[in-house]
Design a protein around this nucleic acid. Structure first.
Length: 199
DNA sequence: CCCTGATTCGC
DNA sequence: GCGAATCAGG
């Protein structure tokens, strides 16, 4: 593959949208992230202020009500640590309820910030993924990856209509050889005991 | 170990 | 100009 005008335009657009080099490479096809980065430099496109932070769908912090206070025996003061990056149910006590939900790394690169600017699409798709959960239950924010962006360690839980061009996959980290992230694995492989909990 | 971008340098 | 290898980092 070579850098045709079209591909360069697409590169500029995607880079401007804050996609990572590897994501852009996946989208363009036929190039590696190195090639993308190299091209970005040659084109003298704006460099990323901060690297890293594998990009997360940083949707507006949902109003997580401080539920379950009663469900929690008592004690459980502020020392209760929020689970870091765990998709499982997070019990949020009043003491920490105000804290922003930890989305893996706390650092936000230009990438994440950019996504915040135009969250429409993100929110819509994420919303669909949340239909089934009840109040007080925290659902992981999916990365909404396209098919080509999946690797063997990304969650392949489908989001939305496969026939729609907005069709995405969860894309969160899938442990081991699991096809799903921890959260979706629970839904996909429901133990009898949990079958009623999650529809 | 996963990922990120930055830089170098042979082609 | 191109991009793999390498570096530096979260």
């Amino acid at each position: 593959m070579s850098w045709t005008d079209e591909r360069i335009d697409l590169l500029k657009q995607l880079w401007g949208d804050g996609l990572s080099a590897s994501q852009i490479a996946a989208q363009l096809g036929g190039v590696t992230r190195n090639a993308v980065i190299g091209k970005v430099h040659r084109l003298k496109l704006d460099s990323r202020l901060k690297a890293s932070a594998p990009l997360e769908a940083v949707v507006a912090p949902r109003a997580v009500r401080p539920v379950l206070v009663e469900a929690m025996p008592d004690e459980v003061p502020a020392q209760r640590v929020l689970p870091v990056q765990t998709p499982t149910v997070a019990v949020i006590t009043p003491a920490v309820a105000a804290a922003p939900r930890p989305v893996r790394s706390a650092t936000l690169g230009a990438t994440a910030l950019k996504i915040e600017v135009e969250p429409d699409e993100q929110v819509e798709i994420v919303g669909r993924a949340e239909v089934a959960h009840g109040p007080g239950e925290v659902v992981p924010i999916s990365r909404n990856l396209t098919l080509v962006q999946l690797s063997d360690r990304t969650c392949k839980w489908p989001l939305g209509d496969p026939l729609s061009d907005e069709f995405r996959f969860c894309g969160n980290h899938a442990p081991d050889a699991s096809p799903y992230c921890q959260y979706h694995a629970r839904i996909a492989f429901q133990p009898v005991s949990e079958r009623r909990r999650v529809r």
